[in-house]
Nucleic acid binder design. Structure first.
Length: 733
DNA sequence: AGGTTAGTAATTTTT
DNA sequence: TTACTAACCT
């Protein structure tokens, strides 16, 4: 290939170009934040095709999100000047599902197997545990769910779980329960998300013939976000790459933030060992952020031990800019006011609100900011909240569709058999399950038998018969009238829409809208099963992205995004880094929290505000907190401190002290002399307490006020009984 | 069968 | 504080 550089290569910097043009053998591209990772990936894809190395269908390109897959598809198409078809380009799960459908019978499934979502999984596992006589109070199903998922993440079928990998959950019954759960899935012709990769990997591991077919098929493999792969995904990739060894993984060890979901940062750390002779290319030229922002992020992440090492340098000439600002505040309300005020200022200065984001550690933190933004009249959107396909009414409707198409889908049938209320209670359901067990048939067949027996009262029996007739009618109508028409018919004739019409709650109208939207969405698909597959794998979240709005989201949800202005509130010990995370994972988790902080800072193009509050309301009561150690780890020369001085914290590595102070204009005028976090007084002492209110007393605990006389209160304490106390000794809760 | 209440637990969630 | 679940009452 000694032709003059094609246009698409000329646009790359030398390191990017190396990443694109190193085509043979294993390649790891360490792509720092904002270094043009997507460009490299898509250009490489296009380059493979344009250089005549292979055909489109001979490339396996894997992403984690549908969004990333879509983006890659579009950008490759743009470079090639035409849409590309017949690609093996998609998420790990979508690609695994596609493979599994081809070989379903080898995994004990039919090719039309159902993919269960988290909710179905949980219900199924609970049933299995209940059936095995497990004490569900002592051993919550969620606990076992997590254990099983970790096993699946590690490529462990029940047979492969060794003593060393076993869990002491439910007195050592976990593996047996796992086996029972898998057996039940097979019976239902279903699999969960973890199974998609587990089954396929197991197949590739044990069947050379099948493995050989894929070796012949895939000439090149491309992997995005490699730092987030779990063990089974790694095994799957390694098996597929074994023969030709043309695997290119792109990722950033400093942005590995999903270990709690099974991701193993070790995958990327030991790439060179796993793939001998690998080339490593580092992308360190950052085109996104100003120099101070990069310096702050780099200084922070340098405190991590377990990393390959990489330093972001400004790739733009205009990369000077304001320092990262660290703001100290009295309490979380003041913090919300500060952020709101700053956003108003930014807006006045012409910054678009769609270029402003507030990134928090945990979902519940968004609330305080939402309230503040509402007060100020600033439009916002919360990214990653309840997703469309996870809403109750949508899931119910989906269950109706599933039960129509798949008569054996017990989970779907059970979900809606008494929704709307048809008078079927525990007795009827127990009878149905008993019949299903006796005849080894689906619940739907059992229900059929039940309507022919005298086991339940006439009223529920008639209602059940009507439902079953409905299913028969609807599935017959599918062919004739088309899935969109029938979908609407199902929701109407089942009484489901009517149920929400009768509902007086304020959400009812919205739910009816969602049902309409769902039926509309069906029209984008060729058939009902195609739609169900799409929803199971894609779970698209149509955010109301349009319009100028401040974005509110968790740090996790922000990975891969960028904004001109970024606010990072709540940098306090216990909250960020999260105490829970530290308790569970120790030093390793601390490093992951630090990576999360790094992800947060590197989202910012122009301005970045870190803040912490001395007092925060947690589960209703005020708690004092100290600044996050991460604040002390920011390189002091690259940040500017604002607000009340803080003493150096014991745990601070830098030992730096807040400089400056008293320039905020946001700080509440009190307690000027004392460092904010030494003060024991609660921000809201118990003013005007009325009869009937619940209060807390240091000595007597919680109680309810039964009478008020001047400053004296009669309180019925929950533990200590009735007492008379002075109002200043209690606080409202 | 279904609604009410008391008790309990509480991050992050690409598919 | 809220949200969810499991016993409890009607």
């Amino acid at each position: 290939m000694s032709l003059p550089s094609p246009d698409y290569l000329a646009k790359l910097n030398p390191e990017q170009r190396a990443a694109v043009e190193t085509l043979d053998g294993p390649l790891l591209v360490l792509a720092g934040a904002g270094t043009g990772k997507t460009r490299v990936l898509t250009t490489r894809f296009a380059h493979l095709l344009l250089s005549g190395r292979c055909q489109p269908h001979q490339i396996l390109a894997v992403t984690f999100t549908n969004k990333a897959a879509r983006e890659m598809r579009e950008r490759v198409g743009a470079i090639l000047g035409r849409p590309v078809e017949g690609l093996w380009l998609g998420t790990f799960h979508a690609l695994a599902a596609r493979m599994l459908r081809r070989h379903a019978e080898m995994a004990g499934l039919r090719s039309d197997f159902t993919i269960l979502d988290a909710d179905d999984q949980a219900r199924l596992l609970k049933q299995v545990m209940d059936g095995a006589g497990v004490d569900l109070k002592r051993w919550p199903p969620n606990g076992l769910m997590a254990v099983i998922q970790r096993w699946k993440d590690r490529g462990l079928t029940p047979e492969r779980v060794t003593a060393a990998e076993a869990s002491d959950y439910a007195n050592g019954r976990a593996v047996a329960l796992y086996g029972a759960y898998q057996a039940r899935l097979k019976q239902l012709n279903a699999c969960d998300f973890g199974d998609l990769l587990l089954h396929v990997t197991e197949l590739l591991r044990t069947d050379e013939e099948v493995l050989g077919r894929y070796h012949r098929l895939f000439h090149y493999i491309l992997v995005d976000e490699y730092q987030d792969t779990n063990l089974v995904q790694y095994l799957w990739l390694r098996l597929l790459a074994q023969a030709r060894k043309n695997i290119c993984c792109v990722g950033d060890d400093d942005q590995s933030i999903y270990s709690w979901r099974g991701a193993e940062i070790e995958n990327i750390l030991r790439f060179e060992k796993d793939f001998p002779g690998a080339t490593i290319v580092r992308l360190e030229s950052n085109y996104r952020s100003t120099r101070p922002i990069l310096a702050a992020a780099s200084g922070l992440i340098a405190k991590n031990e377990g990393r390959l090492g990489k330093t972001l340098r400004p790739g733009r000439n205009d990369a000077h800019g304001e320092k990262v600002r660290v703001v100290s505040l009295w309490d979380s309300e003041e913090e919300a006011r500060m952020v709101g005020g700053r956003i108003e200022e930014a807006k006045r200065d012409g910054v678009s609100l769609s270029e402003v984001a507030i990134l928090v550690r945990a979902g519940f933190q968004t609330r305080a900011f939402e309230e503040r933004l509402i007060t100020l009249g600033l439009p916002y959107r919360v990214v990653g909240g309840a997703k469309f396909y996870e809403r109750q009414e949508v899931r119910d409707a989906m269950a109706y569709f599933r039960a129509t198409v798949q008569p054996a889908d017990d989970l779907a049938f059970e979900r809606i058999v008494n929704v709307p209320k048809r008078g079927l209670g525990d007795t009827a359901m127990a009878a149905m399950h008993r019949l299903a067990r006796e005849h080894r048939c689906s619940l739907r067949e059992a229900a059929q038998r039940l309507t022919e027996s005298q086991d339940i009262r006439p009223r529920p029996r008639a209602a059940l018969r009507e439902l079953l007739e409905g299913f028969a009618r609807w599935s017959a109508a599918l062919e004739r009238d088309g899935h969109v028409v029938v979908a609407a018919q199902i929701l109407d004739e089942s009484g489901y829409t009517e149920m929400w019409r009768q509902d007086k709650s304020p959400e009812a109208a919205g739910r009816l809208d969602n049902l309409k939207e769902l039926v509309r969405a069906l029209s984008d698909f060729a058939s009902m099963p195609a739609f169900l597959e799409h929803v199971a794998l894609v779970m698209e979240n149509d955010e109301n992205a349009e319009g100028e709005r401040v974005s509110l989201m968790t740090l996790h949800a922000a990975k891969g995004l960028e904004f001109d202005w970024v606010f990072l509130p709540g940098w306090e010990e216990g909250l960020f880094p999260s105490q829970r995370s530290l308790d569970e994972g120790g030093a390793k988790s601390l490093e992951e929290e630090r990576r999360l902080a790094y992800v947060g800072i590197t989202r910012a193009r122009k301005r970045c505000f870190v803040s912490h509050a001395a007092n925060r309301r947690i589960y209703g009561n005020w708690t004092a907190s100290i600044p996050s150690r991460f604040i002390g780890e920011l390189p002091p020369d690259e940040v500017e401190f604002e607000g009340e001085q803080a003493r150096a914290q014991p745990g601070w590595s830098g030992g730096s002290v807040f400089a400056g102070g008293a320039l905020t204009g946001y700080r509440a005028p009190r307690l000027i002399d004392a460092p904010a976090w030494e003060v024991q007084e609660r921000p809201k002492p118990g003013a005007s307490i009325a009869v009937g209110e619940r209060v807390f007393h240091q000595k007597f605990g919680y109680g309810r006020v039964t009478a008020v006389e001047d400053d004296k209160l009669d309180i019925a304490f929950e533990k200590a009984g009735p007492k008379r106390v002075l109002d200043r000794f209690v606080e409202k809760v």
